[in-house]
Amino acid sequence: MRLSFLEPLYAERGPFTSVYLDTSRDVDDPERAIALRWRRLRERLARQGADRESLAAVEEVVGADAEVPGLHGQAIFTAHGALVLDDELPSPPAHDVARYGLLPDAMPLVAQHVPEIPYLAVVVHYRGLPTADAHGTVTVAAEAGRWPVSRVAPGERLRRRVPVAEWHAAAVRLGRELGARAGRGGADAVVVGGDEWAGNVLIRRLPRELRDRVVRVGGPTPTDTARALLEPQVASVLRGRMAAHDRALVETFLARRARGGATTAEGLAETVAALQRGQVTALLLHPPRPWQPADLLWIGPGPAQLALSEEELLSFGVRAPRRERADEALVRAVVGTGAELVVVPEADVRLRDGVGALLRYADAATPSGGRQR
C-alpha cells in the first residue's frame, strides 16, 4: 500500500512527539478517563524532553473525536509546537504510547492501516411484495471504503429510494452507478446485505466483472450509523486477507526471486542498500513485532540516508549520524523515496531478517543472482 497519508508527517523535521491514545467512550465519564490517560502520557513525554509548545499542541486535539462511536483511538504527532498529523485509529492501541524523538513513531499507525483493502458495501431494503404492481419502496445505501481505516472514517454514502414497481428499471441505472464507484476505488470485494429479493435484482444488474466479487452477508444492516456501513460483516469478509494489489506485488517478488532475484533484495543489509539508492518500488515486511533494543539503524537527515553502521554514513558525507529505531527509519525511507509497503504474513512468505524488496531496476554492481554483499 502507498503511505501517502504520512507525507505531511515527513515534510516536517524533528524532533517529534508521537502519541497513541485510547479515546473510546464506552466507559462512565469518558472525558475524565481520556484526560487521565493523557496526563500520564504528558508526564512521560516531559521526562523524555518534549517541549511545552508541542505538548500543548497535542493537548488541543486529544479527545476531539467525540463524534466517533464505538472502540477507537487517536494517533497524534506534533513538532516544534505545531500539530503535524491527527489520525483516527480503527482500534484502540493495546497500550497508550508516548515517544519524543528525532523521527516520528509511525509504524503503529501504519499497522492499523494494514491491509487497506478497497471494498464497496451495499445495503438493500424493501417494503411491500416483490411484484411489479406492488406498493412499497426499495431503499439502497452504498459506501466505498478501505478496510480497516474506513471503520472510523467512512466515505461518502450513496442513498436511493425507489418505488417497488420501478425497482427493476432503477436497478439497471444503479448497477452502472455502483460499478463506476467500485471501479474508481478499485474494490476487491462488493459486500451486499439486506433483503434477498431486492438485493438479487441489483446484483444481476452489476457489471459482469463486479458480480464475481460479490459477497452476500446476513445480520443487522443499519444505515444510520456514523461508523462504516456493514462494519461487522465487512470485517468478517476481509479479515485475514491481503489487498489484491499487495498480493500481486508479493507474487511478483516470489517469481523474480525464483528466477535469481536480480530485481529483488532480501535481508536487512540488501534492503537498506537498495533504499539508499532509491531503488525500491515496494518494501516487504513481516507484521510488526515488539521493538527490541537491537533493532537500530544509523540515519542522516535525508530519508534515504540510512545504514547498518555509522562508518558507512560518514563515508557518504553525512555529518553526525544518529542511531534510531529501524522501523522508524524504514517507514521514513519508504515514504521519502515513493515506495510502497506490503506487510506479508510470515506463513505466506519467509523473508530473511523479516524484510525484502521489489526493485525498480537491477544495479549494475549487483552480482548475478541479485545478492549484494
Rank of each mutant, 00 (worst) to 15 (best):
A226R: 15
G186A: 06
L283G: 06
L254M: 11
G240R: 00
G302R: 15
L210E: 09
I299N: 04
Q276L: 10
Q279M: 04
N200T: 12
R213I: 01
R239H: 12
V215H: 05
G240H: 01
L275N: 01
D195W: 01
E196W: 09
L296K: 14
R256T: 11
E270R: 06
W298N: 04
D295S: 12
V191L: 09
R289K: 12
P207L: 03
P220T: 08
L296W: 11
L308P: 01
A189W: 13
V234E: 02
L254C: 07
L249G: 13
D212N: 10
Q292L: 13
G278W: 01
P287N: 04
L229W: 00
L229N: 05
A198I: 01
L306V: 09
P287R: 01
R289P: 03
R257Q: 13
E209R: 12
A226M: 14
I299C: 14
G219K: 01
H245I: 15
A255E: 15
P222Q: 04
V272D: 06
R216P: 00
Q292E: 14
A244F: 09
L306D: 02
G240Q: 02
P303K: 05
L313G: 05
V190S: 02
E231M: 08
R277N: 09
G278H: 02
G260S: 08
D295M: 12
G218K: 04
L306S: 05
A274D: 04
V237C: 02
G300F: 05
P293R: 00
G240V: 06
T221L: 10
I299E: 05
W197G: 06
L313T: 07
L306E: 00
L313H: 03
V237F: 04
L229P: 05
A226C: 11
E196K: 02
A189S: 11
A226S: 14
D195M: 03
A187N: 04
G267F: 12
L284W: 00
G193T: 00
R211H: 02
D224E: 13
R247W: 13
V214C: 01
A304M: 11
E196Y: 07
L254Q: 15
P288M: 08
W197Y: 09
A274P: 03
T271D: 04
D295W: 12
V192T: 01
P288V: 07
E312Y: 11
P293H: 00
T221N: 08
P222Y: 02
H245L: 15
T263M: 11
L285T: 07
P222G: 04
R247L: 13
G186H: 03
P232N: 03
R205S: 14
L296V: 15
V192P: 00
V250W: 02
T221P: 07
H245F: 15
G219R: 03
L229F: 01
G260D: 11
G185N: 12
S236W: 04
A228V: 05
T225H: 15
L268A: 11
L254N: 13
N200F: 00
A235S: 14
A273P: 08
A235C: 11
R257L: 09
A255T: 15
Q292M: 13
E251L: 13
L285V: 07
Q276R: 10
V217M: 08
R204A: 13
R204H: 10
